[in-house]
Design a protein around this nucleic acid. Sequence first.
DNA 1: GGCCGTTTGAAACGAGCGCTTGAAACGAAT
DNA 2: ATTCGTTTCAAGCGCTCGTTTCAAACGGCC
Lengths: 236, 236
Amino acid sequence: MIRHNPEKNRVVAPPGDAKDRLLLAAGQEFAEKGYEAATVRDICLAAGVNVAAVNYYFGDKKRLYIESVKHAHRERVRQVPEPDWPAGTAAARKLHDFIGNMLERMLGFGQPPWQVRLMLREVLQPTEACRELVEDYFRPHFELLVSILGELTGDAVDAPRLRRIALSVIGQCFLYRAAGDVVGMLVPEDERHDLHSLGQLTDHIAAFTLAAVGAGPSLAPAASHRRGPPAEPAAS
Amino acid sequence: MIRHNPEKNRVVAPPGDAKDRLLLAAGQEFAEKGYEAATVRDICLAAGVNVAAVNYYFGDKKRLYIESVKHAHRERVRQVPEPDWPAGTAAARKLHDFIGNMLERMLGFGQPPWQVRLMLREVLQPTEACRELVEDYFRPHFELLVSILGELTGDAVDAPRLRRIALSVIGQCFLYRAAGDVVGMLVPEDERHDLHSLGQLTDHIAAFTLAAVGAGPSLAPAASHRRGPPAEPAAS
DNA sequence: GGCCGTTTGAAACGAGCGCTTGAAACGAAT
DNA sequence: ATTCGTTTCAAGCGCTCGTTTCAAACGGCC
């Protein structure tokens, strides 16, 4: 229905239908500036379409926003599939890979980061599009992490505590995505590169978590031998 | 200089100078809606002052924003002082208290949460006011946490790794502040209350961290006795 | 009282916003 | 060739925004 003679397109016109270009440009603009600050004029300029196209295809700005979030979400799912291990893979290895995968998805090295930024906005201040995002995208990964942790602890830990441990893992990764700038200000200049290196970050968080659940060596080599009274467990 | 006859105040006029009322109302509005979405008209309406007062006292909207962030920050420092322990307090107890203190500051039970929300916005998307916030407010707490962790590990861990561990602690707390809504969606209904209870959250994060650095029991009671080969340490 | 610097007030300015409009341009069917 | 539904366009509508303006009201001082 669309697709005129390609050599007669008036504008610079990136590839794709006007609707797709609109979704793409909207996602980038909304991710960069937020819903309020982004303007439909700028979005349409970037997409190479007329402002009326927003009203034509989506009705209004709000529905354009919701659709662009869903679109970015679907794209991200397609780009970064869940890891898949051969049967019999050690749980510790799975955890390490999972953390690396999650960090790569969050910090998004190699991929355009605007999709994650868009989702981050939904996480921090949920709108209508958030519930769908959680059910379709976050929950499967969360459940996978919980199952890995269950396997790791030999099913000796009950589900609520497993979920809390999973949230501890996610929190460690999430900090670098959400507060990366502040984290960068808190560490000395020369550590900054290592801190944001995917490999070293993965190793640290995996080691920290494995040690916490008793499936790996403690992070304090000298401290592990003074295992008498656990230094007063600090009851609440 | 200000202070007319108090019984002649024309508007509802909450207590304080017009400038202070403006700072307070601006902080609340900016925290709630963000810089772009908040309007000077609404702020002035809430403060009970004329719109011209913004230009008179602060010049423009941007400077009003920066001053309101600094103001909120100063207020918060006054409200929640750093914990102070008697000499000889066990490091594990200090860590537990520190985490509880940080969670209380972040989740802000009992205090109006808008100040934290305002600072959170700066963390997630830093503006000019952010650097001051980090140096005056975050860094002292961060350094304190690092020193506690150093004490806890008996100085057997080098500074860069200590900093990474500190960030792991902060990340665990930060998740509940920044992504509390999504966290609530991921856990079953009946766990939600426990999950956001300050005491249980503090206990979990403290126990998780103590176990990770080898200063406390593992979180997986049954797993700690099968301490032979650590289930393949998942080399990178 | 008369004056002065400071503070408050109502009104309006220009700019930019989201959204609408009516017509033109197009491919496909007749 | 004409018609039709679909898609694109420039222009402008009404509105709200941040900011400015100018005059009135005030306390302190001579």
